[in-house]
């Protein structure tokens, strides 16, 4: 290599080091922030909060549920969350109390429009939007109810409609586990 080429290579590498240094700092900060959010999920109200809360609260509750129990999960959550990952191998049905205003606000963001419209189609195709009569119908078909950031009184009212009784089994963080008792 000639001297000129050496100087050029050194300059390029210095510039590259200047570009990578903040990226490395940011990557480490992001990992530490994610770790903090894992340890205290309530303190980080972002779209991934339900997933972190589910990991914290749902997984331990599921130890109390037999593998063949049919699980109904009712959540006051609007964003997508991989509930199944913590409930498997048990069959799961999810009903969501979706905040329509929040969805409309998200839809106005160009970067989120595609994701929100896909999520809307998914919710509609799976009939996941919570309605009192649908909740009552599903309660009559499941063995276990998990309430996740959801008011127990509303579930009890639906249980009355369905003619079943809800017996609280355990509670952890934002999740409550109920056995569905049929007459």
């Amino acid at each position: 290599m000639t001297r000129g080429l050496r100087v050029l290579a050194a300059a390029v590498l210095l510039a590259q080091a200047a570009a990578v240094a903040p990226a490395l700092v940011q990557a480490v900060s992001a990992a530490r922030a994610a770790h903090q959010a894992e340890r205290a999920p309530e303190s980080v109200p972002d779209p991934w909060q339900p997933a972190r809360l589910a990991a914290r609260d749902l997984a331990p509750l599921m130890r109390l549920v037999p593998d063949d129990a049919r699980v109904l999960l009712v959540a006051g959550v609007t964003s997508p969350c991989s509930w199944d990952a913590w409930v498997l191998p048990r069959p799961l049905r999810v009903l969501l109390d979706i905040d329509e205003a929040l969805l409309l606000r998200a839809e106005r963001e160009p970067s989120l429009r595609g994701v929100v419209s896909h999520w809307r189609r998914h919710v509609a195709s799976r009939r996941m939007r919570l309605q009192p009569d649908l909740l009552a119908h599903e309660l009559s078909r499941h063995d276990v109810l998990v309430l996740f950031q959801f008011d127990a009184a509303r579930a009890a009212a639906a249980a009355g409609l369905a003619g079943v009784t809800l017996r609280p089994v355990a509670s952890l963080g934002v999740a409550t586990l109920h056995a569905v008792l049929r007459p």
Partner: peptide, 21 residues
């Protein structure tokens, strides 16, 4: 960094981890 941020949401779950589970 990966061990500090386990799989929680997004494409890693949708595209593989759920089927893996």
């Amino acid at each position: 960094a990966g061990l500090l941020q386990p799989l929680r949401a997004g494409d890693p779950l949708t595209n593989a981890a759920l089927s893996g589970r």
